Simulated scan of single mutants.
Amino acid sequence: MSVILGRLCEGFIINCQIFGLTLIFSIPLGLLVCFGSMSRFKPLSWLVKTFVWIIRGTPLMLQLLVIFLGPGLLGWGTPWPAGNSGRLMAAVVAFVINYACYFSEIFRGGIESVPRGQYEAGQVLGMTKPQIFFKVTLLQLVKRIVPPMGNEIITLVKDTSLARIISNKEIIMTANEYAAKGLIWPLFSTAIFFLVFVGVLTLLFGWFERKLDYFR
């Protein structure tokens, strides 16, 4: 039993790696995508919005397959290293692109929800656009986006299991190997790993929301 639990923990480490790396890269990338979609330069705005529409309108599982297998099938050669590291890298790239697009829409909604008078007040005070964004808009933006960001981040925890489609040995794939041999409890025990992780994140986001109550 201890051996099986050890393997499940090793699998869950892969889930955690995908989760952590996705957050680190997708949040700043999502902000850049948001600025692109809100750009006054119409060709750029149209291009970014079309890309976001495509990513949000297609399954993440399909995106994983396309990113991992697509270059090789098109004859471009695979850009991924051999072995487990290559599969993990491809999964992270797919997750980052996917979640950056979702986060960008959350950022855009948060920015547009800040009253226009806030911007005008900053301009009257002689503040530049970057100063208005960082000193006036940003903190109000954070308050508005915490609940939807929390939902997306919790969804990300569970979506990491999709990485098995390109043979990343995350926890569910590991448990499924035992289920194929007739041992079912490892498969059900994976729920405990996810429930604990999601529970910790739920408490963390609840605490963070309470800390931002002074914006009400």
Rank of each mutant, 00 (worst) to 15 (best):
L5H: 00
L5F: 11
G6S: 09
G6K: 03
R7G: 14
R7H: 10
L8M: 14
C9A: 15
G11F: 05
G11C: 08
I18Q: 01
I18M: 00
G20C: 12
L23I: 12
L23W: 03
S26Q: 00
L29R: 06
L31W: 09
L32M: 07
L32N: 04
L32E: 01
L32V: 14
V33P: 00
C34A: 13
G36T: 07
G36V: 02
G36M: 06
G36H: 06
M38C: 08
S39A: 08
S39E: 04
P43K: 01
P43D: 07
P43Q: 07
P43A: 08
S45L: 00
S45A: 13
K49R: 12
T50N: 12
F51Y: 14
F51K: 00
V52K: 00
V52W: 00
I54H: 01
R56N: 02
L62A: 12
L62Y: 06
L62D: 02
Q63T: 13
L64C: 09
L65W: 08
F68M: 09
L69A: 14
G70P: 10
G72F: 06
L73Q: 15
L73H: 13
L74T: 15
L74W: 12
L74M: 13
G75T: 10
G75M: 12
G75S: 11
G75Q: 11
G77D: 09
G77L: 08
T78L: 07
P79R: 05
W80F: 03
A82I: 09
G83F: 03
N84H: 08
G86K: 07
G86A: 05
L88N: 00
L88M: 14
A90H: 00
V92T: 10
V93Y: 03
V93L: 06
A94V: 06
F95W: 02
F95I: 04
N98F: 05
A100V: 02
A100C: 02
A100K: 00
A100F: 04
C101Y: 03
C101Q: 00
Y102K: 03
Y102I: 06
Y102A: 03
E105C: 05
E105L: 11
F107D: 01
G109W: 10
G110I: 07
S113F: 11
S113K: 14
P115W: 13
P115G: 09
P115H: 14
R116C: 04
R116V: 13
R116P: 01
R116T: 15
G117N: 13
Q118T: 15
Y119M: 15
Y119F: 13
G122C: 11
M127W: 07
T128V: 05
K129S: 12
K129G: 10
F133P: 09
F133L: 15
F134Y: 15
K135T: 11
L138K: 14
L139A: 13
Q140T: 11
V142F: 07
V142I: 15
K143S: 12
